[in-house]
């Protein structure tokens, strides 16, 4: 066990570094692969081609550009809160990634109430968005911030309820154990695939992904940003590296939510344990999974965030009353039904 042999400070350093990588790497890949390239191909154009081979260095060029820009704040803005807001959003992302397990021992923390924690910290970003919207002293920003808050509160609920199904089925809120459960379980006695919850909790998965789309304020739920209408909503006034932070937070959160979705529904870092004759109950998972696990996780994350981006680039956006109606009248009843069904089946089997 690698982690045990290291002194505490080294472990902490590793975790901080790992956390930074786990936030920035998905953000970078998602931006380059999906935002730059996939979107361009969908729109019959090439995307960035100048910086580096196939424009692969474009991201660094963009970051450099943003860092050079002047850090502007509107005259009437509440400067302190205005400057703080993007950081709050980014902090939420970092707190979120802390709970994701990447391997049998490759995790930042192993919370007992991991799922609960994840849902709790994801709501902090709402605070940052409200702060940004209000402090910009711009009516568009305020409207955007208020819309964002309303939307995030509305979609927090179906997300919680969708996750509850998984929690009931797994019987634990610990994300690490949810992964182990999915990979060591069997479907009606057949253990060739383990039991990834996407099969049994498909409704939950669909609701979770829709809610994630809304939490990330991606199209079709991008009413708070609505660049053709609210001129980017709560981000209207931001420039330079503060905008960059919003930008990183947006895509990093997309990555982290994809990671969480793959933990909850796709079997996380694991491969079905029966393939290697592992029995997680006695901790027999091999050490090399600590290296292979993150790679598996990243792969699953790319697939899920690919879907998120795909939807984003193809759909028009909801109006916010339609969006609220969809959350309260469709998603929440369906997810409640899902919980009921899961509970009944759990007791029955």
């Amino acid at each position: 066990m690698l982690a045990v042999d290291l002194p505490y400070w080294a472990q902490s350093l590793l975790r901080v570094l790992g956390g930074t990588v786990a936030v920035l790497l998905p953000a970078g890949t998602i931006v380059y692969l999906f935002l730059f390239k996939m979107m361009s191909f969908m729109q019959s154009r090439l995307g960035p081609m100048e910086a580096g081979p196939y424009g692969s260095m474009q991201l660094f060029a963009e970051v450099g550009k943003w860092l050079q820009k002047e850090d502007l704040a509107p005259d009437g803005a509440d400067k302190r809160i205005y400057r703080m807001a993007p950081l709050v959003v980014l902090v939420s992302t970092f707190l979120l990634v802390a709970v994701v397990p990447f391997g049998p021992d490759a995790y930042f923390t192993n919370f007992d109430a991991g799922v609960f924690y994840m849902l709790a910290v994801s709501s902090i970003s709402t605070l940052g968005i409200l702060m940004a919207g209000w402090s910009s002293a711009n009516k568009y920003s305020l409207l955007g911030g208020l819309r964002a808050a309303g939307q995030l509160i509305a979609y927090e609920l179906p997300m919680v309820l969708a996750v509850l199904g998984v929690v009931i089925q797994a019987g634990t809120m610990n994300l690490q154990q949810i992964v182990v459960k999915q990979n060591s379980d069997s479907i009606f006695g057949w253990d060739g695939l383990g039991n990834p919850y996407i099969l049994t909790q498909f409704i939950g998965f669909a609701i979770f992904m829709i809610a994630v789309q809304a939490e990330l304020t991606q199209t079709p739920f991008d009413m708070p940003i609505a660049e053709s209408e609210l001129v980017s909503g709560y981000m209207t006034e931001y420039s330079g590296f503060r905008f960059l932070i919003f930008f990183i937070a947006e895509f990093a959160t997309a990555g982290v939510f994809s990671l969480i979705a793959s933990v909850l529904f796709l079997g996380g870092w694991g491969v079905p344990f029966s393939w290697f004759g592992w029995d997680a109950a006695t901790g027999s998972v091999d050490n090399w999974m600590n290296v292979a696990g993150p790679i598996i996780m990243i792969t699953k994350m790319m697939v899920l965030s690919g879907i998120i981006m795909w939807v984003r680039f193809s759909y028009p956006r909801f109006r916010e009353d339609q969006l609220q109606r969809f959350a309260w009248k469709v998603l929440i009843p369906v997810s409640l039904l899902n919980i009921m069904l899961t509970a009944i089946l759990k007791v029955a089997f």
Binding site: A120, S123, I124, T126, L127, L130, M131, G133, W134, L142, G145, L146, A149, G150, L152, I153, E156
Partner: peptide
């Protein structure tokens, strides 16, 4: 933080 204060701020704003 996630619910009460957000609603509070929401109302105030």
């Amino acid at each position: 933080i996630g619910a009460v204060m957000v609603l509070f701020l929401f109302g105030v704003m």
